[in-house]
Amino acid sequence: METKTIAEVLREHPFVTGLKESYIHKLAEMALEVQFAKDQLIFRQGDESGLFYLVLSGKVALEATAPGRISRIQTVGETDALGWSVMLGPGGKTFQARALEPVRALAFDGARLRQLCEQDPGFGFQFTRKLLHVVSERLQAARMQLLDIYAPRTGGKLV
């Protein structure tokens, strides 16, 4: 069985599309391939381990916990990025992430990523721009979820 190098796997992930080869190389150097079993928590609410993930396969649910219940907010899967908040600085995760099925991902240490961005502003800008893209899509999707477009409207006003 042919095993790919981390760099090859990374290159196939849509997140790095358009990044310079040297930047992809820098990311590959700090990447760690990780796996999670079905129902395993990838990180908890408040988790300070500061990891950023690029999901390679499998479905991950973002959840919020409250007394007596867990609410599922969104799922992410292959081609997605997870844990982008580590780029804003140290601090715990807002939500928890659970693997809904076996998940493979590349994990990156947030502190190292931030350091790299400081040291190499060119990389910093490109990487941050990619993150902005992720955040923007996430925000759009969240807003559309809020619209609750399928809900039956009774006696409403405007369409």
Partner: peptide
């Protein structure tokens, strides 16, 4: 009017 509201209110 379509369910939930009028298009031209």
């Amino acid at each position: 009017y379509i369910h939930g509201g009028s298009v031209r209110l």
